[in-house]
């Protein structure tokens, strides 16, 4: 990954008293975007309301449902609980940035093939989360259901139990869970 510009946001007036507004640059889906936001703006609201990227969804807005999941410097996070100003200089990948032109990401393909959704509202978050999950498991990161005596080296094999635990931060109110697990198993192959 290319180095990111961690330029501090413009948080100071000439008198030295901090302001309630900041200007920051984010690299969003590969493109540098500079915006001036009220410090209260979350990354989710910056993406949706300032950058017109409405793929990331606002479900609970309290970090409980996962609909807002995006990748921040490659790691999945709840964008509703991150202040945009804290992300200054970081790279953000949203669901809009996963495909290669018209070619869907393998996780997106698998969600379509396995009919892993009903209403679709949670789907962008589910897909971003699943993309990160595949990297985490390949990287050997454990979950609560990974046997603790397992060596810390080598990828974790993604059983349905592992997938369910690792996707627990993404709620689907339609209950499409069985097909979501199938889709992620397929994408992991």
């Amino acid at each position: 990954m290319e180095p990111v510009d961690r330029t501090a946001p413009a948080g100071e007036t000439p008198e030295g008293a901090p302001e309630a507004v900041s200007t920051l640059t984010l690299r969003v889906n590969g493109t540098a975007r500079t915006l001036t936001v009220d410090n209260r703006t979350t990354l989710l609201d910056a993406l949706r309301d300032h950058l017109d990227l409405t793929g990331s969804k606002k479900g609970c807005d309290h970090g409980q449902c996962g609909a807002c999941t995006v990748l921040l410097d490659g790691r999945r996070v709840n964008s509703c609980l991150l202040l945009a100003v804290v992300c200054a200089g970081a790279s953000v990948t949203t669901v809009e940035g996963l495909s290669d032109g018209d070619r869907l990401h393998p996780v997106q393909e698998a969600f379509v093939a396995r009919d892993a959704l009903q209403c679709g509202y949670c789907t962008p978050g589910q897909i971003c989360s699943a993309v990160a999950l595949l990297h985490e498991a390949a990287d050997g990161q454990p979950s609560y259901v990974t046997p603790p005596e397992r060596s810390p080296d080598g990828p974790v094999s993604l059983t349905p139990e592992e997938i369910r635990e690792r996707m627990s931060g993404n709620i689907c109110r339609c209950g499409a869970y069985p097909n979501i697990v199938d889709a992620i198993e397929e994408a992991a192959r």
């Binding site: 970090g63 996962g66 999941t69 921040l72 790691r75 999945r76 996070v77 709840n78 609980l81 991150l82 989360s129 990160a132 999950l133 985490e136 454990p142 979950s143 609560y144 990974t146 603790p148 810390p152 690792r166 627990s168 931060g169 993404n170």
Partner: peptide, 22 residues
């Protein structure tokens, strides 16, 4: 993971992967 498995397991028992990343 090797020396303090109780700590690793406790962390993994908390919240969700997204929250633990932050």
């Amino acid at each position: 993971r090797v020396r303090y498995p109780a700590l690793s397991q406790a962390l993994l028992a908390g919240a969700s992967p997204q929250l633990r990343n932050a």
